[in-house]
Amino acid sequence: MKLLHTFLRDLKVSYRTYYVYIEFIMALIIVAVMLFVVPENFDAKTKLFLHVEPGTDRELILDSLEKDSSTVLTLLESREAVVLALEENRDGQGAVIRRSEEGLEYEIILQGYESEKVRNIMENVMVTGFKKVHPDFVESTTTRVLDDHAERLSDRISYMPILLMLNSAFMGLFIVAAYIFMDKEEGTIKALTVTPVSIRDYLLSKVGVMLFTGLLTGLLVAVLVAGLDVNYFYLILLLIASNIFGTALGLFIASFYDSIIKSMGALYIVIMAMAFAGVSYFMPSFSPAVIKLLPSYPLLFAFREVFLQRPDRGLILTTTFGFTGAAIVIFMFAVMRYKKTLTV
């Protein structure tokens, strides 16, 4: 009963201050950006400005390029026109095809910002595309599909895991620290030493407030952006585990400082380290061991699973239990820290 009473009191107090509304405002901003700014899927088509000189098999070349749905082809009358078009369209590439003594000659005109690797890929793709419609072409590439039922999230939904992690899971790390320092300034924490409420119950009530807010904002974003295409049971499990972890970590960090200003450096470093796992999330080929060791790394991919029709339950449950266990341990250390500092 004492814990429930403390939780309800802290909940009322928290919603009378502006700190908790930061998380709701961020959630609404995320929803607005995802729905009205981020497209369902980005247009991955490239612009190709092409000039085909007389003496070449024009119809054959155009037929081979038009079969590529990822390229928007614009046919121009001269090489100079191609260069002029590239100056006006910085995201496009150009090509000139002419007949030479050895056969077809390809001149690829790029913007200059492309890397050597990208240049080689573009050259190979273009030349291979032309060769495929040539009468003497023999296919020598073997394609093997590893997963016939692999699912692909839309570009919009792909951003959801990192947004949920930063706003609903780890935003409490900052907010709970702000509440702790506010209570320190008002003498609330020291007053606990002469009341029946224990330090543990006081900290648990803070965890409860952050969890309540994190669940509300996380579910709000998921419902408004993804609708019913979410495994909400697994989403709730992950939100609970990650939010408790973030709040416990915030409580532990706050125990070493006596003001929000002094703690900002440590809090900022922790949240930026957690966010750095997003680099590997968007570029899986870059996954060094130091990033894989970050708690946010498995959390991002676990959040991603809840938006799939066939989620990896093992990954979700393992991540949930791991974050819950880590949160309990960190919370115990936080309780010990606050008991020690209050008795000094």
Rank of each mutant, 00 (worst) to 15 (best):
Q93F: 12
Q93G: 04
I97N: 05
Y113L: 12
V96G: 02
T56P: 01
N167S: 09
R156C: 02
N167T: 14
T141R: 15
T71M: 13
E107C: 06
E139N: 13
K117Y: 13
F137V: 01
F137I: 00
L110R: 13
Y106N: 07
M165W: 07
I121F: 11
A95H: 02
S100G: 15
S100Q: 09
L166I: 08
E123M: 15
F170I: 03
V72N: 08
M126S: 11
L62I: 12
S158K: 07
L76W: 13
E139G: 01
L110A: 14
T143Q: 10
L84V: 05
E59Q: 11
R58P: 00
I97M: 09
H51N: 11
L86R: 02
M160Q: 03
H149P: 00
D57E: 15
R156M: 03
V72F: 09
V145Q: 08
E80W: 03
D147C: 02
S158C: 00
N120W: 05
I162G: 01
F137R: 01
E139L: 04
V52H: 04
L153V: 01
S70W: 04
D63T: 06
Y106R: 03
R90A: 10
T143K: 09
K67T: 07
A150K: 12
D148K: 10
V145S: 04
I61H: 08
R90L: 14
I162M: 11
V138H: 06
G103E: 07
S69H: 10
T71R: 10
K131L: 15
R119L: 14
I109V: 15
G103C: 05
G55H: 10
D155Y: 05
D147K: 12
Q111D: 13
S64P: 05
N167C: 12
V138C: 01
T71I: 15
L153Q: 04
I157N: 01
A81E: 14
